Simulated assay, not measured.
Amino acid sequence: MRILPLTLALLATPLAAQDRGSPLIDYSGFRELTAEVQPVRSERLVSLAQFKARAAQPDVLVLDARSAKAFAEGHIAGAVNLPLPDFTAESLAQVIGANPDREILIYCNNNFTNNRRPVMTKALPLALNIQTFINLYGYGYKNLWELGEAVDMDDPRVGWVKSI
């Protein structure tokens, strides 16, 4: 019987490795990645003034990973949009370019105190910055910097613009 060796092989595989789900999902790998990212991210949080100064440098990318609709309703001037659900190796390379060491600045809803469209505050542990930073880092983009404070999107220093 050919089924028996496969069944025995699956039973011998530790449950942690299987994660009892799709073989295309690696929760243990995600936990390892987040542990690696945590100290890096904590050193890469910048003030609004630092964020704006970095954004003004040549070849620096300001990436907004919110939905296309939220981006169109308002974003930091000069930002480009690639929604987090659309992150793949290919889509990131297309937006970021060929240089994986390119400096990337990120921000999300939870960087703004307004709590109104298009920056509705997310649950703190689910702030989009966290997932965006982890995903970019995991795809090999490690020159990441994150807006590390909460500001009013109506503050002229932010440079908020609307596409619609």
Rank of each mutant, 00 (worst) to 15 (best):
L4N: 00
L4K: 01
L4M: 06
P5S: 11
L6V: 13
L6M: 14
L8D: 11
L8I: 11
A9W: 03
L10Q: 07
A12P: 10
P14S: 12
L15W: 10
G21F: 12
S22M: 14
S22Q: 13
P23W: 07
L24A: 04
Y27T: 14
E32G: 10
A35T: 07
Q38L: 15
Q38E: 15
V40C: 12
R41Y: 14
R41C: 06
S42E: 15
E43R: 14
R44I: 02
L45W: 01
L45F: 10
L45V: 02
S47A: 02
S47D: 00
Q50W: 03
Q50S: 13
F51L: 12
F51Q: 12
K52Q: 10
K52T: 08
K52Y: 03
A53F: 04
R54L: 13
A56Q: 09
Q57N: 03
V60T: 09
V60Q: 03
L61Q: 03
L61C: 03
L63D: 09
D64F: 02
D64E: 03
R66K: 06
R66E: 04
K69P: 00
K69R: 08
A70R: 06
A70I: 00
F71P: 02
A72C: 12
G74V: 09
G74H: 07
G74I: 09
H75W: 06
A77T: 12
G78T: 05
G78Y: 04
A79G: 01
A79M: 01
A79D: 00
V80K: 04
V80G: 00
P85C: 08
D86C: 09
D86V: 10
D86F: 11
T88L: 10
T88F: 04
A89P: 09
A89K: 15
A89R: 15
A89Q: 15
A89G: 15
E90G: 13
E90W: 02
S91W: 13
Q94E: 15
G97M: 10
D101R: 04
D101K: 05
R102G: 01
R102A: 02
R102N: 00
E103S: 03
I104T: 03
L105N: 07
I106D: 06
Y107F: 14
N110G: 08
N111Q: 05
N114M: 08
N114T: 13
N115E: 07
R116P: 00
P118Y: 06
V119Y: 00
V119I: 02
K122H: 04
K122C: 06
K122T: 09
A123M: 10
L124D: 13
P125N: 01
L126K: 00
A127H: 01
L128H: 07
L128A: 09
L128K: 02
N129L: 07
N129C: 11
I130L: 12
Q131V: 10
T132L: 10
T132K: 07
F133A: 10
N135I: 05
N135E: 14
N135Y: 09
L136G: 09
L136V: 08
Y137F: 14
Y137M: 11
G140F: 10
G140N: 07
Y141S: 05
Y141V: 05
L147N: 02
L147Y: 01
L147R: 05
V151I: 13
D154I: 02
D154P: 03
P156Y: 11
R157H: 08
V158L: 08
V161D: 12
K162E: 14
K162A: 15
I164Y: 15
